[in-house]
Design a binder for these strands. Structure first.
Lengths: 106, 106
DNA sequence: CCGACATGCAACTTTCGAGTTGCGTATCAC
DNA sequence: GTGATACGCAACTCGAAAGTTGCATGTCGG
């Protein structure tokens, strides 16, 4: 089981979501992204590093520039695991509630 | 659409996952959690505040103590939205790939 | 009433992440 | 080759988050 926390840490930032949203429209380089955002290219480069480390994004060299591609797979995978945990918690709650409402059962 | 980012920010911390994991086994108070973890009660209280703010946890007064209950619903909800985004990204990628492999189609 | 346990609030370090500037290097276009 | 464009690396500032200590408040059992 790959570690979940870095993915959430990566997703817990507004600027990175702006980057991901932009990349969702199509691959782009750090410089291109810096053009339409209120931060420096280097700041974006750092964010892209974090996103890549989390497996949410993938670099693609194209000559002298490096375009980044968003990876939906990691997101879907994370979603599945999140849902599994959430469902387990809900199940436990439901069981407790049922016992509370009808203690004679079981 | 409730804001997603705070939830991820809350989930992007190791200590908070330890807390959530412990609460997954059953409701507990800050003091009880501090007993089995290498941090102060106040630190845990702060984390619980963050988790509550994110809607991942709910306080339940029980006399002089306050037990916390984990909320799977928020997690499942978040998972659904995550999956939707991830799927959309994958769809775009697949479309591009298809065009690249068979440019004459369409 | 009184001691023990549980919580709440506030001030204070300390660590970490976001963002910046500055500079060196590679690559395209002519 | 030369200028312009695109990256990469390193050092620095800065503000927020994690964690701590100290103290005041509330509540339960006897």
């Amino acid at each position: 089981m790959t570690t979940l926390v870095p993915v959430f840490a990566a997703l817990g930032d507004d600027t990175r979501w702006q980057i991901l949203s932009a990349l969702g429209e199509g691959d782009a380089s750090a410089s291109a992204l810096a053009g339409r955002m209120p931060v420096t290219r280097q700041a974006i480069a750092k964010h892209l590093g974090v996103l890549q480390q989390a497996g949410l994004v993938e670099p693609v060299r194209a000559g002298r520039e490096v375009r980044y591609r968003v990876l939906g797979a990691r997101l879907s995978d994370t979603a599945r695991r999140l849902d599994a945990i959430g469902t387990a918690w809900e199940r436990r709650l439901a069981a407790i509630k049922e016992i509370a409402e009808d203690p004679t059962a079981h």
